[in-house]
Amino acid sequence: VKESLIDSADSNDNSVAIAIKNAQFIDDINAIIYPSGINPPALLLNVKAAPGKFKYDAAFLLQFQNVVTARPTEDWDQRTKSLQDSEDGKRPSANR
């Protein structure tokens, strides 16, 4: 019963998880045009980058922080069980 409640509550989150799963990896980082206000990775980092092998500076990465907020997988609760169990730091793990 508990699991199905969680599933329905998370239905919005799954659309992000599915979008991430279905997206292709960027091959040429210089071909990406970002919306105005979003800066590309520092150019010097990827001067000699092989296709799909990029470095990203912290300032670039931080731009995603408030954008990708939903759970990134459809089975998030299951995958993060160990963390959820211990969030209060006290619950015994006897039911495992």
């Binding site: 991430i20 990203y56 907020t69 998030w76 006290k90």
Partner: peptide, 26 residues
Amino acid sequence: KEVIDFDSVEEFWGIYNNIPKASELP
């Protein structure tokens, strides 16, 4: 415990934003 594998920036943030902050860990 192994929590999760990831290989994209987008997944990294989805994970980071949905786990306790270091200061919140017991």
